[in-house]
Design a protein around this nucleic acid. Sequence first.
DNA 1: GATCGGCCTGGAAACGTTTCCGGTGATGTC
DNA 2: GACATCACCGGAAACGTTTCCAGGCCGATC
Lengths: 351, 351
Amino acid sequence: MSSSRATLMQVAERAGVSLASTSRALHGTGASQAMVDRVRAAAAELGYSPDAIGRSLRMKRTFQVAFAVADIGNPVYVEMLTAIHEVLAPHGYRVVVMSTGHTVASTVDLVRSLGSGFVDGLIVSPLRTDDALVEAIRQAPVPVVVIGRSLEKQGIDSVSTDSAAGIGQAVAHLVKIGRRRIGFVNGPLDTTPGAARQRGFDAATSAPAFAGNHAETERAENFTVAAGLAAARRLLSRTPASGPFDAVVAANDLLAIGVIRAAGELGLSVPGELAVTGMDDTEIGKVFQPSLTSVSLGSAERGRAAAQLVLDRVGDVVEPAQQIAIGPHLVVRESTAPPTELPASKEKSAR
Amino acid sequence: MSSSRATLMQVAERAGVSLASTSRALHGTGASQAMVDRVRAAAAELGYSPDAIGRSLRMKRTFQVAFAVADIGNPVYVEMLTAIHEVLAPHGYRVVVMSTGHTVASTVDLVRSLGSGFVDGLIVSPLRTDDALVEAIRQAPVPVVVIGRSLEKQGIDSVSTDSAAGIGQAVAHLVKIGRRRIGFVNGPLDTTPGAARQRGFDAATSAPAFAGNHAETERAENFTVAAGLAAARRLLSRTPASGPFDAVVAANDLLAIGVIRAAGELGLSVPGELAVTGMDDTEIGKVFQPSLTSVSLGSAERGRAAAQLVLDRVGDVVEPAQQIAIGPHLVVRESTAPPTELPASKEKSAR
DNA sequence: GATCGGCCTGGAAACGTTTCCGGTGATGTC
DNA sequence: GACATCACCGGAAACGTTTCCAGGCCGATC
């Protein structure tokens, strides 16, 4: 926190050359070798390092990209952040983490705040979307990439995934291993992921392949473990006419963990008596006990794609909006298996 | 991504007043009401929003703070990040996430890069520290707050916690509930937390209160679940002369989860046959099955304190370096309990 | 030998903002 | 009525950098 930093002007004086030449020498273009050596030496002596603000002002580039999510506590977003960081850092870009807040209005505010130009681009994964937000994004003074649903018609760059199809994969898997009464623990329906996943569940359970089985939805207040626990308690306290639930599809790994905890409370073994699937294929799901069968939506991959898209855009390539889709795929682990033939004792068999 | 943004100059012209007055009117000091109204109107018409870069250049303030950690994948750092964000955002500060890398050299580079002045302050939680880093921090052109060990003698602001004492609390708890052969799964000893926690374990297990019991350390490659799993396999494959391990202290919640998984592999029940403690009291530990007894080091609290410290410092209050200490405390959950009296059937001695 | 082209350099402008400073008009006080 | 005080306004400088432009030098070409 010592002496104020050296400026380019000071380096120029020290080297006895002009300001322009100094800049060129350090920047590396159109300067003689002698000049470069001289300036480099002076810069080293003074411990010069270029001022990012001055440079930004002149170049109209901040070398910063913002990443905005509602809840950085959700491991999915952390994975995205890591991936984004890995792509951007080698290009000299910094990542600013922002919070969208939980309402769409606050997200609109955030997008508008890009007007102050502290950032060259934005990657945002909004929980909720509406026309105002779409419009704000379209008007935004810097490239914006949305991670979430495809916004092709709206002409906005997006990296999406078909989470509805992902839920379909989970349901298909459960049916295939012999589950007949499937509950669905979803998040709020007015969120983009909540709506998509509900569509996926409804479609999968009204398809011919599902005929004769039972399906039922319970809605959690949000996408956290606590909400999942509460919702699962409600769901599992009901018993369909055809018999107790033997599987639960959760819209989220966190919700799934809540479901498993609820099952534990009720003395239901997982996967023996209750198979549970999650979604997002997070690290926490991998290490949970039992490890979580989960639909991977390629969080890291989506993060990387979004970052690459922003990078392309700030390199002022003006192209029509691009849509990148990442296919979901199911990763089967311990939390799903064919139902155990229960011995009369109803105690859990060997581990 | 439409028309280029309006500048203050344009607002001034539109309002028919000087640039200086425009700035004052918007900034709110020393302008008549009439002037304010007039300028506000013009600004609104043009959709003006002030340019952060121009402002930064002039004010020598970026309204950004960097938070640097080795591994943002570790939930502890996510909790800190959240807390930091919550403190800083209301003051108009943005948070830039940076990676220190795993070597001390790359951390030094990062601190040096502050010289480019893109940020008003830095909060860093380095895994490893050496004299070069301390010196770099002391020379840094902006306030730096270290989360980790106390750096009082070095004259650096720090927010620390006595993790050694925390390990002591864990050991005391285990002894109290009747555990006699305690393993310690630690991370690398050349890291700051690794070293401190080892000291804590060694001190606790060589204290009179521990006399007659067995203690043994196994070192994991890093602080992740996978490393914890591997280390626990090694540890539990050994059997002390006095009998098998009945408790494991892990230096970290992630390591603890690895330990529990290893116990599962070996058919050991937790907490019945093996009690396990973690450290950091992370969200994932709370929801794990069994939920984790863990030593809280107040991650969120430390984040908040560090953020507040940076905030004070950028408000150019020049005071001697401050040391804030957060006391550790044990949170007992399911993963520790008195040993179960094993029915004769279970082959305990043979293992 | 004059001209042209190419390489290199220095001067100066520009990016958008805040703030110092001097000036003007109005108001209040003796 | 003169003078000090005050509130407000406009001009201009400054923050640190990059880049346009013009000019100087040198070698090569005709």
